[in-house]
Design a protein around this nucleic acid. Structure first.
Lengths: 342, 342
DNA sequence: GTGAAAGCGCTAACAC
DNA sequence: GTGTTAGCGCTTTCAC
């Protein structure tokens, strides 16, 4: 391109409407237009009026990248889930999204996978965007990951679990207690030959182990366990029961690490003519939306997934907006919902 | 704070490591360090080495906000779903996320709600981040929304539907043809008293209407329809069948607008002693993971949800990376998966 | 292959 | 209440 003046050609703008254009049209300085948008009480009613007219006329949409860079507040929150297909976390993510959206924050979603292989690249991508907060489903186990999160200085909320050494903030419950409670529950109901079908996931396994050791403490025979791949499926449940019955035909109760597995177990039981709950009690985990309406209705462990999302959002908003966070760890508990299947 | 020199206090930096720090440590100019990261072939091996050492030593994480602002490429893609809980779109979103992550792009997730009430605020939040692409599940109906998307200049992919007037790019299938095919299928199987249980969602209703009108064309009696709220649930299916049987005890086939509804219909049928498929054929939609393993296995409409996600990602990457997009509309089709339930 | 200068579009910090 | 100035951390443009 010719440059007759010998002057440098200035970098061309994107052509989009900027705050500058709006300010010029409204007859004020850019910073005044900025204030009219972000802290309306600091400007006169007249200015507010002129600026909003200019915005309407131009179709201006603020560039949040630029705003975030200048103000160091991206209004972005990152959430990491093992996989988006695991319906257990969905309710948490949904509430998180909604709570944040109400306050003008946007959610960025990352899938870590159950294996943790992509975790590193994911953390880099997340931290690089300088989110105002990071919500992890599950606690971060990798030492290196913990270090990077800590070094980033970004508020972090770990969820769906408890640990004595959280990175920063935590809202969850004890998987060990869940396992124990379910074993005690089934024992109280008169079941004596317990079994487990369990997704290949660290938290699920902790529930299963606690279930097994509690059964031992109660004087029950060894509890057989079948592991199926995570994320769990109905098919996994069917195969799980099939495997169990092959070697342990006498079992009278199965604890499943998800409601979907439980549905699979119930499906397989019916296909084989095994009565639920008559011959076999079935307990799930998650209390998904469908659990109450199965036939028989599913006894399961209810987790306040929505409350976890809400509390996580609250933690981050409090921190970001400079409020004190009196308590950095919240144990949200759990409850066993007794229905027909057990 | 005192300012003895009478000079202005410069704005303090965030304290995080910047490309500047890395460059200084490596003994090169910032732009050279930038090139070492973004276009390694443009710098000498020696520089590459020194820069990567400096990065390792400092724990530098590039600020993508700043990079995006300067380069006008945010490496962010936004996806809009009605709600994250609707499992139908999940597979699309999952593949989209993975395909994009492999290429260094991150997904931003927005929930529009089935009502479209929050759509406006959502669009503003999305466009404000200047994503490199926007993926909509479903087509955008609001005139104003279409206008804003068009004005933004951002590549847009509409999915899970067809329209003669896409905003930009499109990958989907015809809901009308799905409805027609299912009616023809059931007719071929000898069913004559068809019915529909349908979520309160525009696309589902289009399938249902096509189903009804095709039945009429085939000379079948009027097809009763029960609407249930979206997102659909197992409970909705149970209630749907209950309602249908109350007024139309003679029906011999039900087309459900989702597999979850179909599961509900099958559950209710069993609870009432209605044989599936003997007395009642059931057809679902979505071919979710559990459909094949139900008892009886569910006949349903399979949509290549993953392929939709992959194609949407491809569209956006092609456009963003300056490649030609030969074909802006892809009809991905559908298929009826015949199983035991119908 | 490397570097200097000039922004990207916005807001924090000060001054009036 | 409003404006001026100087960046936020990076990349584009041009020059060597």
């Amino acid at each position: 391109m010719a440059d007759p003046d010998g002057t440098r050609r200035p970098r061309r703008s994107s052509g989009a409407v900027t705050l500058h254009d709006v300010a010029k049209l409204a007859g004020v300085a850019p910073i005044t237009a900025s204030r009219a948008l972000n802290s309306p009480d600091q400007v006169s009613a007249e200015v507010r009026q002129k600026v909003s007219e200019a915005i309407a006329r131009t179709g201006y949409v603020p560039n949040l990248l630029a705003g975030g860079l200048a103000s160091r507040r991206s209004r972005l929150v990152a959430a990491v889930v093992p996989t988006i297909s695991g319906p257990v976390f969905l309710e948490t993510v949904q509430t998180l999204t909604e709570t944040l959206a109400d306050r003008g924050y946007q959610l960025m979603l990352g899938q870590a996978g159950y294996t943790g292989s992509r975790e590193d690249a994911l953390l880099e991508a997340i931290i690089g965007r300088r989110p105002d907060g990071i919500v992890l489903t599950g606690i971060m186990h990798s030492i290196d990951g913990r270090k990077r999160l800590l070094a980033s200085g970004i508020p972090v909320v770990e969820t769906w679990d408890l640990t004595p050494t959280p990175i920063d903030m935590l809202v969850g419950f004890s998987h060990v207690e869940v396992g124990r409670s379910v074993a005690e529950y089934l024992h109280r109901k008169g079941r004596r030959r317990l079994a487990v079908v369990c997704g290949d996931d660290e938290r699920a396994k902790r529930r299963a182990w606690a279930f097994q050791s509690t059964a031992a403490t109660l004087g029950l025979p060894d509890v057989p366990m079948v592991a199926v791949p995570a994320p769990t499926t109905l098919k996994g449940g069917r195969q799980g029961l099939e495997t169990l019955l092959k070697t342990q035909p006498g079992i009278d109760a199965v604890f499943c690490s998800s409601d979907l597995l439980a549905l699979g177990v119930m499906t397989e039981a019916r296909a084989r003519g095994v009565q639920v709950p008559g011959q076999l009690a079935v307990v799930g985990f998650g209390d998904l939306d469908f659990a109450a309406d199965l036939d028989p209705a599913l006894t399961t462990v209810h987790i306040k997934a929505s409350a976890i999302g809400r509390q996580a959002a609250q933690f981050i908003l409090d921190r970001t907006e400079g409020r004190a966070v009196p308590q950095r760890v919240v144990d949200i508990g759990y409850s066993i919902v007794e229905r027909a299947s057990a």
